[in-house]
Design a protein around this nucleic acid. Structure first.
Lengths: 336, 336
DNA sequence: GCAGTTAGATTAAACGTTTAATCAAAATGG
DNA sequence: CCATTTTGATTAAACGTTTAATCTAACTGC
């Protein structure tokens, strides 16, 4: 049924080794024979089995993106991840790698990596203190970490400048006259992206001579629903805030909806800044002021780093920091 | 390095065949030996190589979802696909299948299927007249088609009741007093979902004694931007419409944004109905009246059908029709 | 006590590649 | 013209499994 190297060899009247050699450009094969073999492969529509190849030389052209601990829905609702994965996919395509989708649950089960002999891993937003992190390192396969701020040498990492992002968003609000600015973070446990962004927030406050008030910092789990519920919380704060910096666009979407239902007008009564610049920001009503990070590019960069690692190429930099940018749209306004 | 069946065999003092037998529950192995082997496998954290397995018995526990011809961005922006893929993933997980992500471009390159010995395919929204469709059938591997309305026996298919969806959305608008209802379809070439939904639209019109006016039917390519641009088009129609039925929520999002910018108020001046019920419908402003199809379930169903096919189980039905439901929210109102 | 069955294992081939080790013939050089 | 090198190929082992074919010893029934 399936056409193998053996069939090609027989038809060309050579040994399988010769076919393998033209396939890989190894060994010595006369141009004449090579041409003939190539023609036959073309005709017969031959595709070498990655399985057999992988078995022999331990590579499968398969990489996997791991997004730890995200509950169902929680993962799907956030375009961030999809843009990321899409970027990864694009970054691997030219080298004929394929991307396997894997959600790793609390069970920390990574057996799929060895089962499928995955060549490399891209891990998003993991806590360096977690058991999963240890397990991943134990696999000893090429890995690129993303959005994890791991403080350990020899680890390949990709980040956007989260501190700067936190700073820019806050500064923008301050420049509009806001002084009481709530922060709605996804999760502040660990030393991840939100922690960095909060550092940026603090920095901007300090620069403007404003005091940091931790009561203004909320957590929403990075979900729409969390953002939605944050609306009420924001108005039960000790002192009235005039702006909110939500550390995900998805959360901002929920928050604005909540505010809307409470009769609070954005941006007239309260300004909102998001984070990520997902597809929908321009289409939201009002369109969302946000911190843009090029997620697609981030995915592509991580893929590049991973493939270089897999191919044993010398890496220019093991720690890539990508830029962020403030996108001012209609959800922020000068304070009255 | 990697621990194989051979290592287990040696440690247990048996042959590899015996280990393989306890692994698969085949052959005859005394309970005593089996226990010992199982313990050693546990201790050594043994994971059998899917590669070697696949090579021997031609299955790889790998399936692939194919979404044909979607341009970059166009794919990522629509949560429909992610929900679908997520559903597929969930539907395969218990059987230890993994999902490979593959975007097939105009080049119709399906070589990854044979390269990785993919066990089965889920194909979304393909045109039965296309070359790609032929190529897929030529692969002769288990396949489930989704949203494709293929008129050919022996093909496994999953749909939501698109005709009913088109009917319900239209009827809802009619019941609110609307008589001039624009349709913004993604693409009406071919006999796909939008065609079916349009049939439903026509049916509802006919039932209400309203004439079908094809000038009211627009195409937006199923994108946000397309929906956005449709806003102007709608107001250049020969006669004023009071409602729009957009055949994707994403498109509706764009349309509402466009209307908003034109100073048209939704739903006061124009009602909008979407289609899909993606995550964001409840969070949109106004929240979107739409036709709900359980996309996640659709993915899961397709996965079930595919796995049954792969496992050679008798299939209850090769043509599954899932229900749809009208979700009335805030984007539709009685005509003035 | 013996033929026949059964339980519990082993052997070896096969899956589709790659690759190191060989080999034969042709080309080269002095 | 012979020894050496080069060219163009082949052979065979290996990768980690599965599985049909065997084999041996123990058990069964009469």
């Amino acid at each position: 049924m399936k056409i193998t190297i053996k069939d090609i060899a027989k038809e060309a009247g050579v040994s399988v080794a010769t076919v393998s050699n033209v396939l890989n450009g190894t060994g010595r094969v006369s141009e004449e024979t090579a041409k003939r073999i190539r023609r036959i492969m073309e005709e017969r529509n031959f595709v070498p089995s990655t399985l057999a190849r992988g078995l022999k030389n331990k590579n499968t052209q398969l990489i996997s993106v791991i997004v730890p601990y995200l509950k169902r829905g929680n993962f799907e609702e956030n375009p961030f991840f999809w843009q990321l994965i899409s970027g990864v996919e694009m970054g691997t395509k030219d080298q004929e790698f394929n991307v396997m989708l894997t959600r790793v649950d609390r069970d920390n089960d990574l057996s799929f990596v060895r089962m499928h002999n995955v060549d490399g891993l891209i891990v998003v937003g993991i806590d360096a203190g977690s058991e999963l992190y240890r397990s991943i390192l134990d696999l000893k396969i090429p890995t690129v970490f993303m959005d994890s701020y791991i403080d350990q040498p020899g680890i390949y990492q990709v980040h956007n400048d989260d501190l700067l992002g936190g700073y820019l968003g806050t500064k923008h609000l301050i420049s509009l006259g806001h002084t009481r600015i709530a922060v709605v973070a996804g999760s502040l446990s660990g030393r991840g992206v939100d922690y960095q962004r909060l550092l940026g927030y603090k920095k901007a406050l300090a620069e403007a001579g404003l005091a940091y008030d931790e009561r203004l910092v909320l957590e929403n789990g990075g979900t729409m629903l969390g953002g939605y519920h944050a609306a009420q919380k924001i108005f039960s704060l000790p002192e009235q805030v005039t702006a909110a910096f939500v550390l995900s666009d998805i959360g901002a979407m929920g928050l604005i909806k909540g505010l809307n239902e409470m009769g609070k007008r954005v941006p007239e009564e309260i300004s909102v800044v998001g984070y990520d610049d997902i597809f929908y920001t321009e289409y939201m009503i009002p369109s969302l002021t946000t911190i843009r990070q090029d997620i697609f590019k981030k995915g592509k960069t991580a893929a590049g780093l991973l493939l270089a690692q897999i191919n044993g190429e010398p890496l220019p930099d093991a720690n890539v920091l990508l830029p962020v940018e403030l996108k001012v749209r209609a959800s922020t306004a000068r304070v009255l």
